[in-house]
Design a protein around this nucleic acid. Structure first.
Length: 468
RNA sequence: GGCGGCGUAGCCAAGUGGCUAAGGCAGAGGACUGCAAAUCCUUGAUCCCCGGUUCGAAUCCGGGCGCCGCCUCCA
């Protein structure tokens, strides 16, 4: 039975879809004010693995990831660079999409942008005004928080504490009836982009777009809404208030919040400039390494991103690659040849993997079981198990790796080698046949200098590229 | 000040009442190898501290210490 944690209830709940057989998921993607960083990749990965696993469980999944492509910072950045705000948005959205592909995340079904949904946003604001939950004031429109009794149920805060705690920071604005009210629509300042609305020229506040767009693509009540923990308050709290006040019904069943990605103990933050861009990461580490690393901690935990951690992940990943290479050598490529059912030990491990994933997507536990599976397969190889059994075991490993989206490109083929390398390997073979060990080792050093390592197996030498 | 989270072997990290506390990285010993590599075998934990509940707690409750996040744009 699949259980998924829900921030609102503060516990794992059995997953029961709103509509039988299908799942609607909405994740807050990014505000495209600056380049995507590793933190954004965690959303991409968490949503991707949720989708893969729910699909594995037989659901028809619709995934929506939004882009906030209009806000103060984007406008400021555009003015600073002297370009249209759309240019800033386009550039960063393109990068986000490129890194999704880099990581091997499947495309979402929809990537809605705020600026493409002004009609829906304005309609929703109007509904809230009509229902008495919001009020126009000086070209702005505000949500009246005190009129919504459920306010604070997600973030477990009450309004008075909020005001007291943040008294120095809450905007004091004479257009608001109460300091805790938040804007649904903001009047356009001179020189800013704007859209026409019943309240004059302006643009949406930050929170309303997610309500409008999620309900457009997934309905007024859907299954999973996700994002980073820092979005719990105020963004998601406000989203619940707006959406439920507008529709009069429950909005989301499972609020899924992943932990933040830190760099050496400190949160990455746009305001401090303390973050790593994906561009930097993608140049230095292969996709599987980044993916493996991000999945080796439970999604709700914080995770520290460091070179040391990434290098460990790279070493760990090699265990899988080595196994696939050995298997390809012994029993041929995947899909070829007769396969028997995997051995009982492997079938048991498969069950444990699924149990872990059923338990709120415990990818860290699941990966632990995967290493058990690797060991069992290596043991079977060592003990000379039948090729059909090995093929069966390999297909289970592949099935489970696919759920995590790992090692999809790794088929165990030999590495491409540069010119002259094979000749050296052959020469080394001759030297070894003549027991000229000194020459053989010398050639091995030469190969290492060129970036290759050679392993002697019963089936002959295997050349591999050294990992940089 | 308010709200919330975390503290498990050298490092990372599962486990949330009951078999010998997963797994990875690093380390040590062994097998295999001409030597390696890969692989296999063996090897490491007073579960932050102090009380309490319980037949039984890493796991629940109370207190303490330490670290972190949110309350303001942020995945």
């Amino acid at each position: 039975m699949l259980k998924i944690f829900d921030t609102q209830e503060g516990r794992k709940k059995e997953f029961v879809p709103v509509r039988e057989g299908s799942v609607g998921m909405y994740f807050c993607g990014m505000t495209v004010q600056s380049e995507p960083h590793v933190g954004h990749m965690r959303v991409a990965l968490v949503s991707d693995v949720f989708r893969r696993y729910l699909r594995f469980k037989g659901y028809d999944v619709t995934l929506v990831i939004n882009f906030t492509d209009i806000d103060d910072k984007i406008i400021a950045k555009a003015q600073e660079e002297g370009v249209e705000y759309t240019e800033i948005a386009r550039r960063n959205i393109d990068k986000f999409m490129a890194f999704l592909r880099f990581l091997g995340a499947e495309e979402a079904d929809h990537y809605p942008r705020a600026t493409d949904h002004m009609g829906e946003i304005i309609d929703l604001v109007q509904t809230l005004v009509d229902r008495g939950h919001a009020y126009p004031s000086g070209g702005d429109v505000y949500f009246e928080v005190r009129k919504w009794p459920g306010y604070g149920k997600l973030s477990k805060r009450n309004i008075d504490d909020l005001i007291a705690g943040a008294s120095e920071r809450v905007d004091v604005d004479e257009r608001k009836r109460n300091p805790e009210d938040f804007s649904l629509w903001k009047v356009a300042k001179e020189g800013e982009p704007y859209w026409d609305s019943p309240w004059g020229k302006g643009r949406p506040g930050w929170h309303i777009e997610c309500s409008a767009m999620s309900m457009k693509y997934l309905g007024e009540h859907f299954d999973i809404h996700g994002g980073g923990t820092e979005l719990i308050f105020p963004h998601h709290e406000n989203e619940i208030a707006q959406s439920e006040a507008a529709t009069g019904k429950a909005y989301v069943n499972h609020w899924v919040h992943h932990g933040l990605v830190n760099l050496v103990g400190e949160k990455m933050s746009k305001s401090t400039g303390h973050f790593k861009t994906m561009e930097e990461i993608s140049k230095r580490f292969p996709p599987d390494v980044v993916r493996f690393y991000l999945l080796s901690t439970h999604y709700r935990s914080e995770i520290e991103f460091s070179d040391e951690r990434l290098h460990e992940a790279a070493t760990a990943i090699e265990r899988f690659e080595n196994l696939f290479r050995t298997l390809a050598r012994l029993v041929g490529p995947e899909g070829d040849g007769e396969a028997a059912e995997a051995s009982p030990g492997i079938v048991e491990i498969r069950g444990k993997f699924i149990d872990a994933m059923d338990d709120d997507l415990n990818t860290a536990g699941a990966i632990g079981h995967l290493f058990d599976l690797v060991r069992v397969l290596n043991q079977e190889i060592e003990s000379g198990a039948d090729a059909t059994v090995l093929r069966g075991g390999r297909s289970v490993l592949r099935e489970l790796l696919d759920i995590l989206g790992l090692l999809r490109g790794v088929r165990g083929e030999s590495d491409e080698v540069a010119e002259g390398v094979l000749q050296l390997v052959e020469e080394r073979g001759r030297a070894r046949a003549e027991k000229n060990w000194a020459r053989a080792d010398e050639i091995r050093d030469e190969l290492a200098a060129k970036g290759y390592t050679v392993e002697d197996t019963p089936e002959g030498p295997v050349v591999r590229k050294l990992k940089g």
